[in-house]
Design a protein around this nucleic acid. Structure first.
Lengths: 247, 247
DNA sequence: GCAACTTTGTGCCTGTGTTCACAAGCGGCT
DNA sequence: AGCCGCTTGTGAACACAGGCACAAAGTTGC
């Protein structure tokens, strides 16, 4: 009585993430950045223990993650940074630039447009969009803000592959539809809504309010157990261990 | 033969998250917001299927999540929105305001300080900090930016419980230490570094560059299978199903 | 060339999260 | 009043992620 004929639930999941586990991909990106820093500092090799300590990950987990992209370590020595870096970039799809379109140039969007962490890491922001006539036409970081309705044309022209949505919630779905119609396959959504997209479009959501609420939950848990307890002796000097992992 | 004497690996995990699973907490925050919207629209009850569809979550998972905070549903009917909302706020620790301190009022920090999603949801930004003398003293949203060194004093005065770090990477650890010494127990970190903190401080990290790289990875996976394939016929009208869950 | 040491790569086990499927419970209709 | 349909709450199976511990494989020193 419950489930009707139904489609295949397993097929899609396995087909989507051939080989590399979702959770590992996120950490690989972390390793990539840390390796870049180490490389700039002139290091030639790293051991899994060193890299694990630097990224706050369990060494065994790190090795397993790296094993998904091949055997680039030397037993008894560690990992040669240069080749590993190259292989990581390859595996994460960073060998060809991914142009980003950002829709919504309000408070948050403006900051994202100017955020150096994107362009510096192979994700140049190639187009900006908004509906507000006061914003359309202004320059941010050398890029002109265009009207939302131009999304399909301009995205195609500039070879946009990734969309970021930083609009208010109510506008997000419409903008999302435009991005999808422009051929964008991946969307990073900062708006507090659940986007409806075709099955072949990937959406990731960053929800700042939810992040805070998760923290608030932990604060509350603490206060149930401990008394007020203000840490007045400066613990600022010794930070014992620990970089608390998270999903 | 495998497991030696060893300490208790279970003890710590269970003690830390008495009752509610980590992953559920994140979704509970989602439900909370959606229930708020439904309540404003005048709805009295929701079924798990409806709420699940609205939040892009599996209905069974949703019911299990809600079961962690108690039985607030009526079989045959659904959930009464008002009492459920209230209970959710209680369980997530939103019954007493949590003041937030934000360190780093650069590009991203400025946007966060002005972001309406925080204050409106019970997380008033109560203090702003930076090192830059050009920024110290300016007002954002009616709050004066203070110097980093004032973190301990001002945080204590204003009852800050949550810290947000939006500084450049190299400055983050020092700022983090100051926040910890001020008694802050939870930190939301936007800087691309792994913070070292005492074991009793909770850190969550939001890493925008990593989010993009995860998306880039999926784009690359796609391109291995499919040809260029630009979606020119407008798929903008019908968004079939699907709001793609994520970890 | 061999032995001792170091570090990777991985098999296996454990725990956590997700999903299905169904019994229990509630309201409405006859 | 009793039945029927609907929806919750949850037991059980399953998939995924994490971490230990060890064999394999390399390096260094003699």
């Amino acid at each position: 009585m419950t489930v009707p004929p139904e489609a295949e639930p397993v097929e899609r999941a396995t087909a989507r993430s051939r080989s590399i586990p979702e959770a590992s991909v996120a950490r690989l990106a972390l390793y990539l950045r840390m390796l870049g820093e180490l490389s700039e500092q002139g290091a030639e090799t790293v051991s899994s223990d060193e890299l694990a300590a630097a990224t706050g990950v369990n060494p065994a987990k790190l090795r397993k993650d790296l094993s998904f992209i091949g055997s680039y370590g030397i037993r008894g020595v560690g990992y040669e940074i240069r080749p590993l870096l190259h292989q990581l970039e390859q595996s994460l799809g960073l060998n060809h630039r991914q142009s980003v379109a950002l829709a919504g140039v309000g408070n948050l969007g403006h900051a994202l447009a100017g955020y150096g962490g994107f362009g510096g890491r192979g994700f140049p922001v190639a187009a900006l969009f908004d509906v507000d006539p006061d914003l359309v036409g202004i320059h941010i970081n050398g890029i002109v803000v265009e009207h939302i309705r131009e999304i399909p044309r301009i995205s195609a022209e500039r070879g946009v592959t990734i969309g970021m949505i930083a609009t208010p919630g109510p506008a997000a779905q419409a903008v999302c539809d435009l991005l999808v119609s422009a051929g964008v396959q991946c969307i990073l959504n900062f708006a507090p809504v659940v986007l409806q997209v075709p099955a072949d479009v990937e959406v990731r959501k960053v929800d700042l309010a939810v992040e805070l609420q998760i923290l608030a939950f932990h604060v509350a848990r603490r206060h149930l157990a401990e008394p007020p307890q203000v840490r007045n002796g400066h613990a600022a000097n010794g930070h014992p261990v620990n970089g608390v992992p998270h999903s």
